[in-house]
């Protein structure tokens, strides 16, 4: 098992879609002029079902809608902030709204969520997508922490006639779920580390950080729960895993207090009349113009390891 490679979520996902396209002729793959190493083979093999629509996210969504209304399964691929925000009204009306009355299987694949495009600056940072896409009825929001989950999304997506948004980190990352068997994707979360008292609840890239901290604080009995399905949420099930803890620290590459993972967890605690305390860590209510790598951007927002550990210590 030690040979499991570091991989980008998008390559794993595209390889899986490519595989399915051989058997399932109803699958279309549309890209807003955005690539991936794994996309080359797909483009070449399925010339009639791969379309580069150009740098035109609005039309990407509208074309996907038209195809889906005619019964096709569509994967619409682009850079996360542009896909989720440039085309938001197309997503709202033609996907979310339409899906309430018709079957629509459109899967938006947004690459570069959070600050994975760190040095490209605030236009490329994507800190709003969880909030805005989660606010749309009928949508499913998937936020994998590694390429294995990303790959598993494909089977899940083909049979569910709803619009979905899968938000992918832009950087290659080591696998997390290679040693985990028999977990249910539809449950939407997984308790990667069983702890006592304090639990880190994270999504996407931050789960890697949570795991590292839990390991570094060995003996600290810090739990880690990875939430990869941000909508819908199996509230009862998730609370069953949470209720043994006294403190929760949420970790996300998203703006804080605005409907992200933190709001989602607070809502569960409120609905369950729980006395568990919650501290949320994420990005401040401002854009980042300072250039720098991901760790630097985390530091500016108290999301670096030292500050996360400090927050954990304060909980004790």
């Amino acid at each position: 098992m030690n040979n499991i490679p570091i991989k980008t979520m998008r390559d794993a996902l595209i390889e899986q879609i490519f595989d399915k396209m051989h058997k399932n002729e109803a699958i279309f793959f549309l890209s807003a002029d955005f690539g991936a190493p794994a996309l080359d083979a797909l483009k070449e093999k399925f010339k009639d079902r791969f379309i580069n629509v150009g740098i035109a996210e609005q039309n990407l969504i509208n074309l996907s809608t038209g195809l889906a209304l005619e019964g096709f399964i569509v994967y619409a691929y682009g850079i996360a902030p542009f896909l989720a925000m440039r085309a938001y009204e197309q997503i709202r009306i033609n996907l979310s709204l339409s899906a309430q009355i018709k079957e629509i299987n459109v899967n938006l694949i947004g690459v570069g969520t959070g600050v994975s495009y760190d040095v490209s600056g605030p236009t490329h940072h994507c800190l709003e997508d969880i909030t805005i896409i989660r606010s749309l009825p009928t949508f499913i929001v998937f936020s994998p922490s590694d390429w294995i989950l990303s790959e598993k999304f494909v089977d899940f997506s083909i049979n569910i006639q709803k619009p979905k948004y899968i938000r992918l980190d832009g950087k290659p990352l080591p696998p997390i779920y290679n040693k985990i068997e028999n977990f249910n994707l539809e449950n939407g979360f997984y308790e990667l580390v069983q702890g006592e008292q304090i639990c880190l609840v994270s999504t996407g890239y931050m789960t890697h950080k949570a795991l590292k901290i839990a390991k570094d604080l060995h003996g600290g009995n810090i739990g880690v729960i990875d939430v990869f399905l941000l909508k819908p949420i199996k509230e009862d099930l998730l609370f069953d895993s949470l209720k043994k803890y006294k403190f929760i620290v949420t970790l996300e590459e998203a703006f804080m207090n605005k409907g992200g993972l933190d709001s989602l967890m607070l809502n569960i605690l409120k609905n369950k009349n729980s006395s568990i305390k919650l501290k949320n860590l994420g990005f401040k209510d401002e854009y980042i113009f300072e250039s720098g790598g991901r760790n630097y951007l985390h530091k500016l927002n108290h999301l670096d390891e030292i500050n996360i550990i400090k927050t954990i210590e304060e909980c004790k």
């Binding site: 509208n62 074309l63 195809l67 033609n94």
Partner: peptide, 28 residues
């Protein structure tokens, strides 16, 4: 949501793009 209407209408500028998707689908 009315029989005879293919799409959700009301916000402008969507019809042609959705129509292009349908046109691709019909050809396929």
């Amino acid at each position: 949501n009315i029989p005879g209407f293919e799409t959700i209408n009301g916000s402008l500028g969507h019809g042609l793009g959705v129509g292009c998707g349908m046109a691709l689908a019909l050809k396929r």
